[in-house]
Design a binder for these strands. Sequence first.
DNA 1: AATGTATTCAACCGCAGTCAA
DNA 2: ATTGACTGCGGTTGAATACAT
Length: 268
Amino acid sequence: MGRAPCCAKVGLHRGPWTPREDTLLTNYIQTHGEGNWRSLPKNAGLLRCGKSCRLRWMNYLRPDIKRGNITPDEDDLIIRLHALLGNRWSLIAGRLPGRTDNEIKNYWNTHLSKRLRRQGTDPNTHKKLSELDQQVLQQSHIKKRRNNNKNNKKKKSNNQGPTEIDSAQEKPKIHLPKPTRVTANYFSIPRNESFAMSSSSHGEEAVNVPNWGENPNGVSFLGGDELINTSLEKLYEEYMELLKIDGHDHDHDQVQSHNSFAESLLIL
DNA sequence: AATGTATTCAACCGCAGTCAA
DNA sequence: ATTGACTGCGGTTGAATACAT
């Protein structure tokens, strides 16, 4: 249908948020709650589009956000969840209390995917790369970054918009299937709250579906690192159990069994 | 010290799902 | 059944910063 971009309105602020804007947004949400993003900026006295407000709140201002220092446990969990779920960042973030989808996406792109590549694993498929594949990936990665920076310089000096030709030329992408949208109808817990995995999980089904509804009182899972680590450990155990039950050779069928589990998470 | 290159991450963009009219 | 507003998501950009030469 093609709607006009929500930020196209003349006179709206863009770019980095100022402390004053942050305060206005925080104060407004603290008194009126989240939602109604469209009308929020006007009501809060902000010259921002609703989308921008939502993003700022979700990724930066929310009080339950844990910033920086992603622990090795979280590292490992992100990698495992990515193998299961692919680039479904919001789903992954939902399993990491206090982390945002944007943060995890950035962390993946800047740290984890590189690490996997260095270890000879394709970050997209989580399969072992051949030596040739590794070389190709390294080359395209380096080339892409170089080109990107060249473009940045060019844009700075010319003060021109993005050069579509440039960006289109140097992007040999590996496309994953478009992530399935997961709505609140499926999972009725707030984002960034961990879920309680059932401990008696091995019934007739090979996979287990988390108890999404088991947080009726809005019980916080952010009570401390101990609590978080406990839930992470539970997750690890659960995944390992699932892999055992599948009875597959992990090296060869890991991705496939992960995918089937991922599907079970998405299609209820 | 100056310049070039690489990295990080907040913010933006556009698409797609949902839902009310 | 259709339409359009709203919302949420993943992909991408680009300014700021760090590091290398």
